[in-house]
Design a protein around this nucleic acid. Structure first.
Length: 774
RNA sequence: GGACCUGUAGCUCAGCGGUAGAGCGUUCGAUUCACAUUCGAAAGGUCAGAGGUUCGAAACCUCUCAGGUCCACCA
């Protein structure tokens, strides 16, 4: 044996032995309760970051522990297409080539992204293997596998049949830069130093007097439909009671003065402009007043999806939002005043640009239906939580989950990107040619957009249009939606039908992951492995992912599993974020990002796994520097040298089983030896008991600490020294060492397996399937 | 405006009802004998502060102070 342990020469060899041995595949035994983890699918297109290494470490520890305990153990791996992320990265690549998504029809663009992803998709899997992940790769799933897509589409249709999907026009979070809408959970809020503008709106009846309106977004005044005051505000009572109107400056349109409780008398001037097309609050006011929102959207939406002012913005047509704002301030001259003001704006989580609330027709999932005959997605999870059908491990995150469940709003699942699962909705074109607008690329590569009628008249065939389709915009017309069907196949009734061009939110498919991966895998998998044992992931995606898996998992298994078994997992383990050694958040801009694979190559997978897991607590962030990893590399070496000591001097390690040490010149009687050995036996039993208990309680960080300390400071520092002095026989030392190898194996699988293979022992089984000590 | 988390050794963090712990760092000493990626020893802590519960509190409760995170329709 070499004097120091060299992981590079060992790890790939060991991994191959495990994989070839088929040890990652569970042996299904109907009499035994399985242990199952569905792996959080990483982005198929990206290399792993340190957070992925964290989940691999924790999940692999649990998996290996349970496998050794003899449980039929399944760790089901997969990757995610990560719709917006991936398309965003791909579009950046296109931009470098001077192109954009608008140069391609959706089919071509999809195919290009698919090829791009396939080229990179092996990377994440290879890296997980490098980290020692003992997942069942034979059951691997990708979110765009045809069987998964099929299932996800069925779910959409099922939700529709249960009346839980609503197609409606509503203000959505739209990012003009990324060209898509987002759910409420995908936007971020940033506090910015803005300006509060006070604008004079003259009264129609007394033009010399005016109401002073406070706003942070003067440019949206072009779309104002009213101004509102608080009904209790004595300053303005007479205006709304007398149905007075004000004249909207610049536009010179007369609008009503109304009252609404939403208006805060204390804030600003107590007068608010109402712009339902560009502000959620104002939209809510319009809803309360039962105004015709469809009409308001179509008349008073002044900002377009490109982030520029639309035709109805008059002189400001074509300007960006910022330009329009500047110009309006100039144009208002004396009728506007400015006050510095701190406000929060929504920004795109992806590109950081300001999110524009814009009206658009989208599909929403009703998360909390108002009528009791409908299935209650959040309500069912709240019940499950109250009944303790699942448990949350992670510093106070249970309370946060509950808070989310109680406050979740309807979930917008439409995305205006191609990289995803296309929504199974068909619009009737026949008879609606003037209503439905499209954009497409013709067979000569020319880009066109406008109502379909226009292109039919120019002798484009439906075949050609459909083939080159980029986007279809199907509005509500006179308050009613154009006829559409929700089904898998294109309708064949002789009419022309086009499919919706929007795709489903990535989280809609990954939200079904525990159900769909088991249902589309080996026959019987779902019945045997569902509900799974643990969902292990970072606390940062608790609302966006875990919450949705709970909702959809319970919904999809409603009539299949007994009530107490409907949750997709019975335990939720939320690990913290890995920060740099100073506790700073890792980010590319700070330059403090640690690449887990570099660390594997430098110190070995065992070392980084142990470094990530040691003393970690669920839900709590953890600082890990290169020093930490180096320390754990030293542990590898310590284990290695203990093995060297035990096997030293024996050409045939098999001799060890029968060898005892001769104690020349040491005068220790048999009784004393027996006492010491008995003491050691009791101590190792205690260690086994402690580690087992800690792992059962998901106290992984503590378990790692105990193994570390007992191995190093008791076994190495004391027991080996005692053996040297003759107080303990080497066979007992070896026996205890083998136990330590088992206890260490889940944490540091490679080195322990390697040494296990070099030591004489009773079985020929590899360590990975040896039995957990009792 | 709400909610949650955290304040323990120089640094990063465990411990969460029974005599203050680890890793890294620091100081001193040790090397033919498994390992200098080592060993032995030492220094270093009113466990943020104040009340309370208890035979006993770093741990449980209340308040205060200080950090951090998430949510939210004050234009």
């Amino acid at each position: 044996m070499e004097k120091t342990y060299n992981p590079q020469s060992v790890e790939s060899k060991i991994y191959r032995i495990w994989e070839d041995g088929g040890y990652f595949t569970p042996k299904i035994d109907p009499k035994k309760k399985p242990f199952t983890i569905i792996m959080p699918p990483p982005n198929a297109n990206d290399p792993l970051h340190i957070g992925h290494a964290m989940f691999v470490a924790i999940e692999d520890i649990l998996i290996r522990y349970h496998r050794m305990k003899g449980d039929p153990t399944l760790w089901l791996p997969g990757t995610d297409h990560a719709g917006i992320e991936t398309q965003y990265v791909f579009e950046k690549k296109l931009a470098k080539e001077g192109k954009s998504r608008f140069n391609f029809d959706r089919k071509t663009l999809y195919q290009m992204i698919r090829e791009y992803v396939e080229k990179n998709s092996g990377v994440a899997v290879d890296q997980m293997k490098k980290l020692g992940a003992s997942a069942d790769w034979g059951r691997f799933k990708f979110t765009l596998d045809s069987d998964i897509v099929n299932f996800v589409i069925d779910t959409f249709i099922k939700l529709h049949k249960d009346n839980l999907i609503e197609r409606k026009e509503k203000l959505i979070n739209y990012c003009p830069k990324c060209g898509t809408s987002y759910s409420d959970l995908e936007i971020e809020h940033e506090e910015k130093n803005g300006i509060l503008y006070i604008i004079d709106y003259p009264l129609v009846n007394e033009p010399e007097k005016c109401l002073k309106v406070a706003t942070t977004r003067p440019e949206t005044m072009l779309g104002d439909v009213a101004v509102a005051v608080n009904p209790k505000d004595p300053r303005y009572k007479k205006y709304w009671q007398n149905h007075e109107k004000v004249r909207l400056p610049i536009v010179n349109r007369d609008i009503d003065v109304i009252e609404d409780d939403m208006v805060d008398m204390e804030f600003g001037t107590g007068v608010v402009k109402i712009t339902p097309s560009h502000d959620r609050n104002d939209e809510a006011v319009a809803e309360r007043k039962k105004w015709n929102l469809i009409e308001i959207y179509s008349k008073y939406t002044v900002i377009g999806f490109d982030g520029k002012m639309r035709e109805n913005a008059g002189a400001y047509y074509g300007m960006s939002v910022d330009e329009a704002r500047k110009q309006i301030i100039l144009d208002l001259k004396d009728d506007i005043r400015q006050k510095p003001y701190k406000n929060t704006v929504s920004v795109c989580y992806r590109c950081g640009k300001t999110i524009e609330p814009l009206p658009r027709t989208q599909f929403f999932i009703k998360v909390k239906p108002f009528t009791s005959d409908l299935y209650n997605l959040t309500g069912e999870v709240i019940t499950a939580m109250k009944k303790h059908w699942f448990k949350v491990y992670g510093a106070g995150r249970g309370a946060i989950l509950q808070h989310w469940l109680e406050n979740l709003r309807d979930w917008n699942i439409s995305r205006q990107i191609v990289w995803g699962i296309r929504i199974p909705v068909w619009y009737k074109i026949t008879g609606n040619e003037d209503l439905i607008a499209i954009s497409f690329i013709d067979s000569k590569g020319q880009f066109h957009q406008g109502p379909i009628r226009q292109w039919i008249d120019k002798k484009y065939s439906h075949d050609e249009i459909e083939r080159g389709l980029q986007q279809i915009l199907v509005p509500f017309y006179k308050g009613r939606s154009v006829e559409h069907l929700i089904q898998k196949e294109k309708p064949t009734d002789g009419n022309i039908w086009y499919q919706e061009t929007d795709t489903l939110d990535t989280w809609f498919s990954s939200g079904q992951w525990p159900v769909v991966t088991l249902k589309t895998n080996k026959p019987g998998d779902f019945d045997y492995f569902y509900p799974t044992s643990v969902m292990e992931t970072g606390y940062d995606i608790l609302p966006i992912w875990v919450l949705r898996m709970l909702m959809l998992g319970m919904y999809l298994t409603k009539n299949e599993k007994g009530d107490d078994k409907r949750v997709p997992f019975t335990d939720i383990y939320l690990h913290g974020l890995i920060r740099d050694e100073k506790g700073q958040k890792m980010s590319k801009s700070k330059g403090n990002v640690m690449n887990p694979i570099d660390m594997v190559e430098k110190y070995g997978a065992d070392a980084i796994r142990m470094a990530l897991v040691m003393s970690s607590t669920p839900g709590q962030d953890k600082a890990v520097g290169e020093n930490t990893i180096r320390g754990m590399r030293n542990l590898s070496n310590k284990i290695w040298n203990a093995a060297r000591y035990i096997t030293r001097g024996y050409n045939d390690p098999a001799d060890l089983d029968t060898l005892s040490r001769s104690f020349a010149g040491v005068n220790i009687n048999e009784k004393e030896i027996q006492n010491y050995e008995e003491d050691a036996r009791i101590k190792i039993q205690k260690v086994i008991g402690d580690v087992t208990k800690l792992l059962d309680e998901y106290k992984i960080g503590l378990a790692a600490e105990v193994v570390y300390n007992k191995f190093w400071h008791w076994f190495c520092d004391e027991l080996i020294e005692k053996e040297k002095d003759g107080y303990i026989r080497i066979d007992l030392l070896k026996e205890i060492f083998l136990i330590f190898l088992k206890l260490l194996h889940p944490f540091m699988p490679f080195i322990t397996e390697e040494i296990w293979g070099m030591l004489p022992r009773k079985t020929t089984d590899p360590l990975i399937i040896s039995s957990w000590p009792k």
